[in-house]
Simulated assay, not measured.
Amino acid sequence: MANSLEAAKSELVELAHRRMQHAIADNAWSDRQRLALTCRILFDGGHDSGLAGQITCRTGTPGRYYTQQLGLGFDEISERNLLEVDEDLNVIEGAGMANPANRFHTWIYRHRSDVNCIVHTHPAHVAALSMLETPLVVSHMDTCPLYDDCAFLPKWPGIPVGNEEGEMITRALGDKRAVLLAHHGHVVTGRTIEEACVLAMLIERAARLQLLAMSAGDIKPMPPELAIEARNWITTDKRHAAAFAYYARRALRTHADCLA
């Protein structure tokens, strides 16, 4: 006999979260493996743009982070060819050089102690939306993790290799997890690599949905309280871990070489 048919939604949400804590296992990959998997996942998700874009995560040493080697595409990144660099982009471990545009990552890491992973890419629909100088509009349940959590930088600062660009992007991001960059792409951040990867996949889907909806009519706003409820429902470590694990399983079917 059912015992929960009279329960309030808040009770059912709490019950589901408690069950997730036991039912969803934590991912066992190392940070280097998660970062390599993120590169392959985003490649499959349409985030490839030649050599453009950077994905980084903090190492265990303050002021250092892992990133990909300049000259390799996202589909070529493995845990073995990742670089460890310092805040000046000097290579501490690995061969080759980091993308000079990684400089703005240093600014974000310095200003946001809660951020442990940064994804910056130029996927097609995000890039197209950025050409319209239009902020991201969240008006669908699936994209609610970005509701009121995606900033907008309306001024293109040019190539992001200077400290000025680092200051500008960091200031625009503020305390949010994502920012859409006009005439450029996006930046998403996460407390975990899984969170940043999932949000990066989501922002491209959100931009695609927005462009499709704009082509058909006016986008209708969501009730704020329901959008926040959906954001809080989806935005948990366990949900991010489960989504990342799914994306990783899918990627490993064709990208087994990214793990040693």
Score class of each variant (00 low, 15 high):
Pro100Met: 00
Leu51Val: 03
Ala196Cys: 09
Ala207Asn: 02
Trp107Cys: 04
Ala101Tyr: 01
Ile55Gln: 02
Leu199Glu: 11
Leu37Trp: 09
Ala7Asn: 13
Arg32Pro: 11
Glu167Lys: 10
Gly50His: 10
Phe104Gln: 11
Leu132Arg: 13
Glu204Ile: 05
Cys258Ile: 14
Met201His: 04
Asp149Phe: 04
Thr56Lys: 02
Met201Gln: 04
Ser215Asp: 10
Ser139Gln: 03
Ala260Lys: 13
Asn99Glu: 06
Thr61Lys: 13
Gly190Arg: 12
Val85Ile: 11
Ala128Tyr: 05
Met131Leu: 15
Ala36Leu: 06
His111Glu: 09
Arg177Asn: 15
Thr236Ile: 02
Asp31Leu: 01
Arg80Thr: 12
Val198Asp: 05
Glu225Asn: 15
Leu199Val: 08
Ala216Gln: 12
Phe43Ile: 03
Arg32Ile: 02
Arg58His: 10
Thr61Cys: 12
Leu226Phe: 05
Ala207Trp: 04
Asn232Phe: 08
Thr143His: 10
Gly71Tyr: 07
Val119Glu: 01
Ala260Ile: 04
Thr189Trp: 04
Gln68Arg: 15
Ala260Asn: 12
His122Asp: 00
His255Arg: 14
Leu259Tyr: 05
Leu180Trp: 08
Asp88Glu: 13
Leu12Asp: 11
Arg112Gln: 06
Ala241Thr: 14
Leu180Asn: 05
Asn99Gly: 01
Ser130Ala: 15
Met20Ala: 14
Ile41Cys: 13
Gly46Glu: 01
Ser215Ile: 00
His22Cys: 03
Pro157Gly: 01
Val126Phe: 06
Tyr246Asn: 07
Ala213Thr: 06
Arg19Thr: 02
Ala213Pro: 10
Gly217Met: 11
Tyr66Lys: 04
Ala2Met: 01
